[in-house]
């Protein structure tokens, strides 16, 4: 199918495309990443970077109690990703195959993209007057006598951080899954039912395997952005929710560039590890090669 399209559009055989892409991508993305990794092997003395290779920064990273921060970051990122997947998949399924009209789909998609037009900080700061001790929710709870005293856990704890991160990352999870489910041919679903498949079998045997590329995409986008989240923990965590990105920003304000480099490298390594584990775990259930190959035919 893709080959036919290429021929029809006369795009040539694309022999130059891959080297071109690798070249540009190496220059713009891989090279800075390598520089970052290299920097993590330098150290800082008197606010100056000393360009002498050593493991000092890495030792510092693991000996200064960052382990707890790493665990918290991982826990929050994974929780947020799981919650988004648990809500996002059924939502995407409903949107793509739930007999929704074209108009409903267009409206829902437009609503999902609205957050991308507004700055992250402004989107998040509005939660403060809502969740605050004297905020909208507490006022409501007190006025309706649901609560007798202001609920302090609503702000500056892990709860609002989780809550708002789930919201900000929701479109990241839903959009790739929606795209993947949307292109599944309806007659495949009909064929499964026709052969005796219950709704559960349709979901497990047809929709799930065929939408796996989208699910993986959603997880990568959400997990990556949640691991690197900085605005939510610092604005709604009130200094009580210390995550890796907070460490990065504080190292940055102390001009400790090697530490920034080491922390960032660490986050990238963590993400890569998580995705590797995820892929290996999923491979037990689905053969990826088949799914991706099936998209070509």
């Amino acid at each position: 199918m893709m080959r036919n399209l290429t021929q029809r559009l006369n795009l040539g055989d694309g022999r130059w495309a891959l080297p071109c892409f690798i070249g540009v991508w190496s220059l713009l993305v891989i090279a800075p990443l390598v520089v970052l990794i290299v920097f993590s092997f330098f150290q800082t003395q008197y606010f100056m970077t000393v360009y002498k290779p050593s493991l000092y920064t890495w030792n510092d990273l693991f000996s200064s109690g960052r382990f707890e921060v790493t665990l918290r970051t991982l826990r929050i990122a994974l929780t947020v990703t799981l919650i988004d997947l648990a809500i996002g998949f059924p939502f995407a399924l409903w949107l793509a195959k739930g007999k929704t009209s074209r108009t409903v789909q267009a409206i829902a998609l437009a609503l999902l993209t609205i957050p991308f037009f507004i700055d992250l900080s402004s989107r998040i700061i509005v939660w403060r007057p809502i969740l605050d001790e004297h905020g909208l929710i507490n006022n409501f709870l007190l006025a309706t006598h649901i609560a007798s005293a202001p609920q302090h856990w609503l702000l500056y704890t892990e709860w609002p951080v989780h809550f708002v991160m789930v919201i900000s990352n929701f479109p990241m999870m839903v959009l790739p899954i929606y795209m993947a489910i949307n292109v599944i041919d309806d007659t495949l679903i009909a064929a499964c039912q026709d052969l005796g498949g219950s709704p559960f079998r349709v979901l497990r045997d047809i929709i799930l395997p065929l939408s796996l590329p989208g699910i993986l995409g959603g997880i990568v986008f959400t997990l990556g952005s949640a691991l690197a989240a900085w605005v939510e923990p610092s604005m709604l965590g009130g200094g009580f929710v210390d995550v890796l990105s907070n460490s990065i920003s504080s190292a940055y304000s102390a001009l400790r560039v090697p530490m920034v480099a080491a922390l960032s490298t660490f986050v990238v390594v963590l993400l890569a590890l998580l995705l590797l584990i995820l892929t290996l775990a999923m491979r037990r259930f689905v053969r990826f090669g088949e799914v991706f190959r099936s998209m070509k035919s």
Partner: peptide, 14 residues
């Protein structure tokens, strides 16, 4: 009863 669909509707991942 079973159906042979016009587009065959074969499962591409199997």
């Amino acid at each position: 009863c079973t159906t042979v669909f016009q587009s065959y509707a074969l499962f591409p991942h199997m």
